[in-house]
């Protein structure tokens, strides 16, 4: 179905050009991501292709060097805490928003989405100055709070989207059959909106795990996350351990992406 049957020769040509152009753009989109993978396995400490000799030395550095390893642990802990907090708060809010009686929907939706819009430096600097008043800078709690604020819009959006296909009569039916509010929620509503919640949780995890700027302002050496470690590395002296770390992050993104794809496929089936 690339072309209608009535197409003129010049139309066929232009169609070929458009498709060729689109393919080129898609290669431009995807190729840079995978350039880092072979470089991370190179034995040489510079960045040219093709790789002359392969080795795992940069991965040994990544996992053996306490500085890099602690950064990975810090990122994982902050991301898990952010995910729990953001998914809980975001799901509750989405449940409220989905109700027909929700007041000031437009204004509140604009507020809930705004963390996606406000420039990240403003969030970072604002949190740095404000959290500093309460001793929350250079603490894990401060980082998790700021990351949760950034992550909640994703949860609100995904759960709201799932709820739009959820038949509220199911909840009513559960009530009429004698289920209490909580029991109806946990046994009827929750299983139905779970795919949306998990999608939101995946987004929240990725948001926190990948975030650099806020972490740059809010963490000291002790809570330093993997992206911050990478950022300072690139600034000072770019070295292949950063490629290894980037490859790890890329792998994680692909895993999360696949998880999300499987999840949404199940939902639409």
């Amino acid at each position: 179905m690339w072309l209608p049957s009535y197409a003129t020769p010049s139309e066929r040509l232009s169609r070929i050009l458009v498709v060729g152009f689109a393919v080129a753009v898609l290669l431009f989109l995807i190729a840079p991501l995978f350039i880092i993978v072979p470089l991370s396995f190179s034995k040489d400490p510079f960045f040219t292709l093709p790789v002359r000799e392969y080795s795992l030395r940069w991965y040994e550095d990544l996992f053996g060097n306490p500085r890099w390893f602690n950064a990975m642990v810090n990122s994982a802990v902050a991301a898990v805490l952010t995910t729990i907090l953001a998914t809980t708060l975001g799901t509750l809010a989405a449940l409220g928003i989905a109700r027909p009686d929700f007041p000031y929907r437009r204004a509140i939706m604009a507020l809930l989405i705004s963390p996606m819009i406000v420039p990240i430096v403003i969030v970072a600097v604002g949190s740095y100055l404000f959290f500093g008043q309460f001793g929350l800078t250079n603490t894990r709690a401060g980082l998790v709070f700021a990351h949760t604020a950034l992550a909640t819009p994703f949860v609100v959006i995904t759960v709201t989207a799932t709820l739009s296909t959820y038949d509220t009569n199911l909840t009513r039916a559960a009530h009429s059959l004698g289920a209490s509010g909580l029991s109806a929620f946990f046994r009827v509503t929750l299983p139905n909106i779970l795919p949306g919640m998990v999608s939101g949780a995946i987004f929240a995890f990725a948001t926190s795990f990948d975030e650099v700027v806020v972490a740059l302002f809010l963490t000291a050496a002790e809570q330093r996350t993997l992206p911050v470690q990478m950022f300072s590395g690139i600034r000072d002296q770019i070295n292949p351990t950063i490629m290894a770390a980037a490859t790890m992050l890329l792998t994680l993104s692909i895993l999360l992406f696949v998880a999300l794809a499987l999840l949404t496929r199940k939902k639409t089936r």
Partner: peptide, 9 residues
């Protein structure tokens, strides 16, 4: 996939 990959990567 690029959308999913960390901005830093």
């Amino acid at each position: 996939l690029p959308l999913w990959t960390s901005l830093l990567v």
